[in-house]
Write a protein that binds this DNA or RNA. Structure first.
Lengths: 336, 336
DNA sequence: AAAACTAAGTGAATCGTTTCATTTCGGTTG
DNA sequence: CAACCGAAATGAAACGATTCACTTAGTTTT
């Protein structure tokens, strides 16, 4: 059951291992007859290259790591798709690591990827891990932040202006005449949540009549949204907001489910609702959801592209910060 | 910039490489003082194990491959989550490969996983690739089919009885008095689609008044569902079905979007609609979607478990076929 | 015909970790 | 005190693909 190696192939084909390797990697350097003979032996013997040996020799693997907050969030799967598209153009594959907002898992994936000597790491980081990332980079693994920048701009990044997005959302709520706005989101160590809230605060601050309060959640999921919605329903009627800005669409959908279960509170009549990300399901929600659209696949594509350029450029590479602008999408949940 | 190896660590700590390796893998075999010293050097020098070298030596990698039809489908991300849960209990990681219903990509991932000498492969196969899988297994990579069985039961599998699920769905539509049923699904080389349709046909056959026709789609996505919905709307009113069974929830949501855009056809009044998978978004749809629930995370968890047992047992292992029963979930889209 | 190329092929060295047969040494036993 | 023991540590061999300096043989050039 011992696996077939280049040696076995070489022996069976009556050539040297070097030639087998050349057939595999530079067939043009080998005479056509030999190529054919070696190829025949390869398929006869069922030889399969051992990637570990290749990598060991090459020093680097042919994949890159992508660490995201939540694979169940379509925003991230879209992003992953975009990343994979660019990576496969270079013959690289993408390893997907899912942290579920958990710092320990985030650290574990970074360790794993570093041990695998991945070509580079794309990460949508949780807390402040710039130290860990600096270490990673100093040991030779280029790193690009997605959907986030560090304070000191020391890492290349591809992001969407979340403050602007938050502003767009809250401004829109104010524009349709709402004044008592609730921001549903958390946990509050997630940058995206912080920025979107900040943007919303800025927009609200410009309107003397409008106010905003925060309903904290412990995840950015449908379930957490449902809990937040319930919490809002439990308030005395006078205490309830007339608009809700959810930090992402999953939360918004959860909130919507909670409100709907109740029945007497209508969206948008009593409470307007806007989400964030504009995932495919937003348009299909009970009440089609207004949202802030981000070019998710493009972010992934661009991030890999930037990563490759950074890898190419080495230490000399000037870190780049690409920022996309979000876009307001109005649907019934905030409509007439 | 050359990376630090066990040799460097050994030299700096004044021990042999064997001892460094023991500190890494069997610290109890090394005296406490030495362990501490070596560990200190490791963190000083920033030594990171080279996984490729480990794997080369070990002969197998510490990950397993999961090949799915569509990462954008929450059913598969839930399944992946379950798989990861079981895998991480054994210290294994899961590599996710997304085929997008594309045979070439499926083959590419199998090649990749085989070159990586993964511990095993979980696959939700597209066409008939039992030959390829037999080869894979014969070379020592255990394989478990998820969400699918081969005709000859020669592979272990964890699946849901899709025929029963199709029957449940169609029976339910008939039970609420619908007779002109449209099945929306495709492409027709996907087993799940075939089985669900067959189940539906069986249920319909028992009712003399009921009939079923098929609206073929080229993918199992929201977009494809929208196109199918449009196609149904384009028919003359008399030709339209009074119920639609979509092969999965993504399609159902797409169909729903198309019907809703039109406005004069109401779900469920004019057309009842049922999906399949019961993804989290089904309950949150414009009209909350009836669906067939599958224990997605459990499938993934069980599949990895089975894979591990198969790996353990070697060739002697008796292939197992675990079949879960699906469950009807009734919501408004087929309700009163 | 000698010198200078080129194309094709060779095979030893290399990558970094793990393993295992072996050595070292302080302590215990008969 | 010789013989033995176990714990701790050693270091060479192995894993399998790739690389590169080198040979061989055949073709041009002058």
């Amino acid at each position: 059951m011992a696996s077939i190696s280049v040696n076995d192939v070489a022996a069976a084909a009556g050539v040297s291992v070097g030639t087998v390797s050349n057939v595999l990697n530079r067939p043009d350097k080998v005479s056509p007859g030999t190529v054919a003979r070696v190829r025949a032996v390869i398929s006869d013997l069922g030889f399969v290259r051992n990637d570990a040996a290749r990598q060991l020799r090459a020093g680097r693997s042919r994949s890159l790591g992508l660490v995201v907050l939540d694979v169940a969030n379509p925003f991230f799967t879209d992003l992953a798709r975009g990343a994979e598209a660019r990576a496969s153009e270079e013959g690289l594959s993408v390893l997907l690591g899912n942290t579920d907002d958990n710092c320990a898992r985030e650290a574990a994936y970074l360790d794993l990827f570093e041990e695998q000597r991945v070509h580079g790491v794309l990460i949508s980081p949780l807390g402040d891990i710039s130290e860990r990332l600096t270490l990673l980079r100093s040991r030779g693994t280029p790193t690009v932040l997605v959907d986030r920048q560090t304070e000191d701009h020391s890492f290349s990044s591809v992001a969407v202006d979340d403050v602007a997005g938050g502003r767009l959302a809250a401004q829109h709520l104010v524009d349709i005449g709402r004044t008592r706005i609730a921001f549903v989101g958390g946990p509050s160590n997630i940058r995206q949540v912080i920025d979107r809230l900040q943007g919303a605060r800025e927009a609200v601050a410009e309107h003397p009549l409008a106010s905003i309060d925060v309903v904290d959640t412990d995840a950015l999921s449908v379930l957490a949204g449902r809990a937040a919605g319930q919490q809002i329903l439990d308030r005395a009627p006078g205490e309830r907001p007339d608009a809700i800005f959810a930090a992402n669409d999953l939360l918004a959908i959860g909130v919507l489910q909670a409100l709907n279960m109740r029945g007497d509170l209508l969206v948008p009549r009593d409470i307007a609702l806007i989400g964030y990300d504009d995932i495919a399901f937003a348009a299909a929600a009970v009440v089609p959801l207004s949202s802030i659209r981000q070019p998710s696949a493009l972010i992934g594509y661009t991030a890999v592209d930037l990563l490759l350029r950074e890898a190419e450029g080495g230490d000399a590479f000037e870190h780049e910060h690409i920022v996309f602008q979000p876009e307001l999408v109005v649907r019934e949940s905030t409509g007439a």
